[in-house]
Design a protein around this nucleic acid. Sequence first.
DNA 1: TGTACATCAGTGAACGCGCGTTCACTGATGTAC
DNA 2: TGTACATCAGTGAACGCGCGTTCACTGATGTAC
Lengths: 213, 213
Amino acid sequence: MDRPGSRPRRPNRRGEGSRLRAEIVAAASALLEENGNEDAITLRGVARAIGIAAPSIYAHFPDVDAILDAVVADAFEDLDAALVDASAAEGDLLGSVCRAYVSFALERPHRYRVMFGRYRAEPGAPVNRPRPIEELSGATAFQRLVTAVAARAGAGRGRDVGSDRDPDTAETATALWVALHGYASLRASVPAFPWPPEDALLRTLVDRLVPSG
Amino acid sequence: MDRPGSRPRRPNRRGEGSRLRAEIVAAASALLEENGNEDAITLRGVARAIGIAAPSIYAHFPDVDAILDAVVADAFEDLDAALVDASAAEGDLLGSVCRAYVSFALERPHRYRVMFGRYRAEPGAPVNRPRPIEELSGATAFQRLVTAVAARAGAGRGRDVGSDRDPDTAETATALWVALHGYASLRASVPAFPWPPEDALLRTLVDRLVPSG
DNA sequence: TGTACATCAGTGAACGCGCGTTCACTGATGTAC
DNA sequence: TGTACATCAGTGAACGCGCGTTCACTGATGTAC
């Protein structure tokens, strides 16, 4: 037996089997964050954490990799939700979105790392080429950043917010994304660096990278 | 036996035992890059790649983690060397250093990822606090960036290059580092994103983040 | 209302695998005398 | 010059472990009649 005798789990009722799926993803996510390493997400480890037998997982995931896939998909949904919340706030839209992005990453840094840092090359697959942004995980999150950049960039110039599709806006948003990602990643993985105060560095990045007005 | 019968390796001569150490690090580094994952660095896998018996590694490393430590230390030395080379070039110092940094990262992206992305919390260790920069891996590499930033920032203003210690310079260098790291990381891990041309994005980052003159 | 039965949600034991590590060892190479 | 011996560089077999996955199974819950 794999689980400690503590919790005698009773099966979900009929039709509620998919609850276990959510529990599996949550447990895997927690294991990742606690151990700091996606290798902590093992089939047996997840089963142990929830208090089920290891083979029970196969009803919901074809193999162990699929669990990590689900963790990542879940994380992208959470990120998008966080940016939506931030967009709803009053006042400085761009600043608010940027702070939310960095907070999301720093709150659960290992989960964030895995969102972007997972190796995915199927050997023998065709070389990755640029693809339309809509097809990518995180595409909607990126679009929220583009919108916020467009709002600030257009502010002083009488352009309307619809300038989302301006290539300059896209490049500026890309530059900003890159900087936010770099900051969040390094802050988490090199905590001993003498970082300037978070709000100061964030303001520097946003103000310099995004031409306003 | 762990190795394929192919290569009958003969022992190094006396006093040259440490050659094997270098071979181990090189093989581990190659395994990391080929498999995209530091888990590919197993004691047995490394031994197999070199054509030695697994226990032979213990003469040079106390355990398997120490191999990865050595790979990372080696990588930081290489990075510093690359930046030194770039600094020696004529013309645009800052541009040259930034291009070298990104090239280093993109040439062996998995090695680069591991340099910064490794989980290192010894459970129960005191919380990481800011430490003097000199104590960190990569400190000399960062200093080369600071110097290049100072050179450009001071250029038009009659300040001399000695302005390395200006806190503004340090913050600007930090902002730039963060952006370069973010770009290199994301370019490698999200190749399908519609990236703008590398030189254009790099120029945008450098020109906007580093006030010149 | 009772009951046979299908289905759902999950179990328990077993397998083979690659791993890190320990142990006693071997054979070549130098060196003291 | 010869030779005994210490040392160096590395070997081979074995161990116990946790892992992913397969297999035949079980017990509770609904449902058709």
